[in-house]
């Protein structure tokens, strides 16, 4: 069996005395698309943010292709240099619920920023690459606009293009459609589905259970401070084995028919 692209080993995190999760192990193989589901406050975002060290895990490690890029020392500090963290983050792209575009830069500037500042690419080349990424998400004509002029769905697609520009090996999505008008959810899910069809590796925190079912290769249900149930979408979403998963799905499907 080949080396996992991403391995979480014994990952744990608390905020003060509030234990969010502990002992989380997860292997992500190339091409895996993992949907993380769970109740509000169950720690989905925190888990995702530990993977690229936006949150500092208390214990455990994050390995990419067998190289441990993130190691906690058990005291809330990282045994990683800033260089390791920047290297890790270039290989792991992230898309946020609130988009977090840079408002003082044009759309193309947002997408090119990482290439120019982090990769040292010339701004002409970077803008060319940005244009290509914008076309991929259907916004080839918006490069010169400022983010404030875009709809929520367009903003989120720019954020996806910004992450893609860095050629990440894994994409993390934290509820990418939760801040959107229902009418705009489709265009963003469409782009994510297209990335899935290209065989990209991704981890997606979402409340869109139908989308998770269609797109994910594996579903992880988070509860009781860790991974509570995991399996194929068929197993976890159609035939959940454990009570909290069953309860969660029942609550979410109550108003769906």
């Amino acid at each position: 069996m080949s080396e996992p692209l991403l391995r979480l080993g014994g990952l744990g995190k608390s905020f003060g005395t509030n234990l969010v999760f502990s002992g989380v192990d997860l292997d992500v193989m190339p091409g895996d698309r993992i949907a993380i589901l769970g109740a509000s406050g169950s720690g989905k975002s925190t888990l995702l943010r530990c993977i690229n060290a936006l949150e500092t895990p208390d214990e455990g490690l994050v390995k990419i292709n067998g190289t441990p890029l993130l190691k906690a020392d058990g005291k809330g500090r990282l045994r990683s240099t800033e260089r390791d963290l920047c290297a890790l983050r270039q290989r792991v792209g992230m898309v946020f619920q609130q988009f977090n575009l840079f408002p003082h830069m044009t759309v193309a500037g947002n997408v090119a920023e990482g290439l120019v500042t982090v990769r040292g690419m010339s701004s002409g080349k970077a803008l060319e690459r940005a244009q290509a990424e914008l076309e991929r998400v259907g916004l080839g004509d918006k490069g010169d606009a400022y983010p404030s002029r875009l709809s929520g769905g367009q903003k989120q697609r720019v954020a996806i293009a910004r992450a893609l520009a860095m050629d990440p090996e894994i994409l993390l999505f934290d509820e990418p459609t939760s801040a959107l008008d229902p009418a705009l959810v489709g265009e963003v899910l469409g782009v994510i589905e297209q990335l899935a069809n290209e065989g990209r590796t991704m981890i997606l925190v979402t409340h869109e259970i139908g989308f998770a079912y269609h797109v994910a290769t594996r579903v992880v249900f988070v509860a009781e401070h860790g991974i509570y149930e995991t399996g194929t979408p068929e197993e976890v979403l159609k035939h959940p084995a454990r009570p909290l998963t069953q309860q969660f799905l029942a609550d979410h499907q109550r108003f769906q028919f």
């Binding site: 920047c86 983050r89 270039q90 946020f96 982090v118 992450a163 860095m166």
Partner: peptide, 8 residues
């Protein structure tokens, strides 16, 4: 966070 997330 967005800036750190692209490796800055």
């Amino acid at each position: 966070e967005a800036a750190r997330a692209i490796g800055m």
